[in-house]
């Protein structure tokens, strides 16, 4: 096809291109402005932890700190007043052990539901999944009194028991969906070779399910780490209280604590989940994808 370049209105094309370019630059600036607005509270947090109580109340909230020296004092005071070391250990214990056990139990249940030939397959699943249907408020009073009766109130074991239980149903859903998509050829072959179901589960299914198991583990770990309600109700004592519960202490008993220290405590309490997120972002996002299914 012949193409006569002289028939083109080059000026118009240039104008159009410029407009397009300008549009996308404008859009970029708008996006940057919006993102800045979104992170102002983080900026506020970041500078507040470098201020002494005095400086905080004297200077405007967005003013840069006068130095970085008060940070250490803020951290140590927050750490000591909230007994945050103990609380972090507790939450780390609940989070890692509770979420691991829950995901492992969920994998076992999902294996039975998807790979074994059983009646009422869906019924068993619905029974486990029913654990996600009710709002948390319905557990509070019965668990509080039940725990008191059984001597589990304010004990590490009691907290672990609850966290493990509450974290079972959702991973069961995810892992069931995942396992029913796994090819059956491998485990049939293994069974032919005389492997029993335990071998099939541990040697074949589990190694192939590591990806989604990591993803749901991260989601459940974060949930436990972030939980405030149940640790307030079931484990309010110093020895058993969780990190979020320790953070709440600053809202209560101490009216001589400045915002700089409370904000430092809030950041300290959040650091582990932030670090975890940036290290394992891919798995988190995978977790979101499975949440969707």
């Amino acid at each position: 096809m012949a193409f006569d370049i002289s028939t083109l209105d080059l000026d118009a094309i240039e104008r159009r291109e410029a407009a397009k370019h300008k549009g996308s630059t404008l859009k970029l600036f708008a996006a940057i402005g919006f993102a800045l607005l979104w992170i102002v509270p983080f900026y506020f947090l970041a500078i507040s932890i470098f201020k002494s109580s005095n400086e905080y109340s004297r200077n405007p909230p967005l003013a840069l700190p006068e130095g970085i020296a008060p940070l250490w004092d803020n951290v140590t005071r927050a750490w000591e007043l909230g007994s945050m070391g103990q609380a972090m250990m507790n939450s780390a214990f609940y989070g890692t052990v509770g979420a691991s056990l829950a995901v492992f139990f969920a994998a076992m249940a999902a294996f039975a539901i998807t790979r074994l030939d059983i009646p009422f397959r869906n019924g068993w699943f619905m029974l486990i999944f029913a654990g996600t249907v009710f709002p948390f408020q319905m557990y509070l009073i019965p668990l509080f009194f039940g725990y008191q009766k059984l001597g589990l109130l304010n004990s590490h074991m009691g907290m672990l028991l609850f966290y493990t239980a509450i974290c079972v149903p959702f991973p069961t859903l995810v892992l069931r969906n995942f396992m029913s998509g796994l090819s059956r050829e491998m485990d049939e072959a293994a069974r032919m070779d005389g492997a029993n179901e335990f071998t099939v589960f541990f040697r074949i299914i589990l190694p192939n399910t590591i990806g989604p198991m990591t993803a749901v583990f991260l989601l459940q770990f974060t949930w436990i780490w972030n939980d405030m309600l149940f640790s307030t109700v079931l484990g309010n004592r110093l020895e058993t209280r969780s990190i979020m519960n320790a953070l709440l202490v600053f809202q209560g008993s101490y009216s001589s604590i400045g915002p700089n220290i409370v904000l430092t405590a809030a950041l300290l309490a959040s650091l582990p989940s932030i670090v975890l997120f940036f290290l394992l972002r891919r798995h988190f996002m995978q977790g979101l994808q499975v949440q969707q299914s």
Binding site: V233, N236, R237, L238, R241, L248, V249, G252
Partner: peptide, 9 residues
Amino acid sequence: TPYANAEQY
């Protein structure tokens, strides 16, 4: 043996 919050206590 302290409780952090009076309601919970």
